[in-house]
Amino acid sequence: MNKDEYNKLVKRLTPKENKSKNALVAFLVGGFIGFLAEVFATIVMEFTGLSRVDAYLVTCLVVIFLSCLFTALGFFDNWVTKVKMGIILPTTGFAHSIMSAGLDYKKDGFITGIGANFFKLAGSVILYGMVSAFLFAIIGVILYG
């Protein structure tokens, strides 16, 4: 077997991560979450007379609650591994990371388990979000006054 044939063999046998399929699934699922959120927000606005901004906050809370509940019930992890960014990028991923950290470390007790590990995964989002937002706000103040 010469080098060319060997390379072909390696190429054929490496498990293919179907990137275009992953991207399509992420697009459809992520879009669907946004679509559902918009539908829910519209319903909230119609029935409670809340302002647009408040209706979006209510929607956000409901999305977070549902994703925590689904994680606790155990089937959300499967969805995350299948869909990846389509579920992780919406707020569902943020809630999922806190909830699963809480459940995973529950056995280690309240302080050293749940308390110490609660923000293990969500911490980076909060940390870099806060630091960058603070810097950007200073830049914004300088630019726009």
């Binding site: 992420a26 697009f27 879009g31 979450i33 990846k84 960014m85």
Partner: peptide, 14 residues
């Protein structure tokens, strides 16, 4: 809403 959220997730996945 569908397109915006979908496109962000698409880029994230890529």
């Amino acid at each position: 809403a569908f397109l915006f959220s979908g496109i962000f997730c698409l880029f994230a996945q890529i």
